[in-house]
Amino acid sequence: MAHAQAHSLEHVEPTNIGPPKLGMWLFLSGEVVLFGGVIMTIVLFRISFPGWKEASEHTNPIIGSVNTFNLLTSSMLVALAHKMSATGNHGLSKLCILGCLAFGILFLVLKWAIEWPVEIMKGYTIHEGPFWQLYYAATGLHAVHVLIGLIAFTVILILYMGKWRPNFTLEATALYWHFVDIVWLFLWPLFYLS
C-alpha cells in the first residue's frame, strides 16, 4: 500500500541500528537490571550469612562446569548460524541451530533432571537456608530464560525448514542467547566455585 511505502521512505535513520535491534538491546538492558538485582541479592546474602561457604561446597561443580561448556558451545554455534545464514549457507546454518538446540537441551536436562533431583534427595531443598533458596531461585530463573530461548530456536528452525529465511529474527534470538550465556557466567562462580 501507498501508506506503507511512505512509511519507509520518509523517516530519517540517524543511527546504523535499525528499530528492531534497538528494541532488542533495550529489552536486554532491562534483563541486565533484572539479573543485576538477583546477583546483588546473592552478594548481599553471601556477605551477611556465615553459612554460605559451607553450603556452597555441596553443589556439584562438575555438572556446573559441564553446563558452562554447554552454554558457551551453543552460544558459539548460534553465532556461526547467524553468520552462515547471512552468507547464504542455509544448510550449515540450520545444522548450527540444531547443535545449539542440542546443547541447550543438554543444559536443561543436566539441570532439571539430574542436578536438582539429586540435591533434593540429599536434603538440600529450597527450605535449607539462604544459599539453597537463592540457588534454586537464581538458577531457576536463568533456566526459564534458557527454556524460552530454546522454544524460540525451535520455532525458528521449524520455519527455516520451509521457505522462510531468518534475518533479524535469528540475530535477535542470538543476542538474547548470548545474554543468557553471560548471566550464567556470573551465576557459575557464585554458586559452584566459591
Binding site: 538492558s29 532491562g30 537490571v33 533484572l34 539479573f35 538485582g37 538477583v38 546483588m40 541479592t41 530463573l141
Partner: peptide, 12 residues
C-alpha cells in the same frame, strides 16, 4: 527500564 528489574525479582 533501568530500575524495575530488581523489583520484579523481588516480587517473585
Amino acid at each position: 527500564m533501568m530500575s524495575v528489574g530488581p523489583l520484579i525479582a523481588g516480587t517473585f
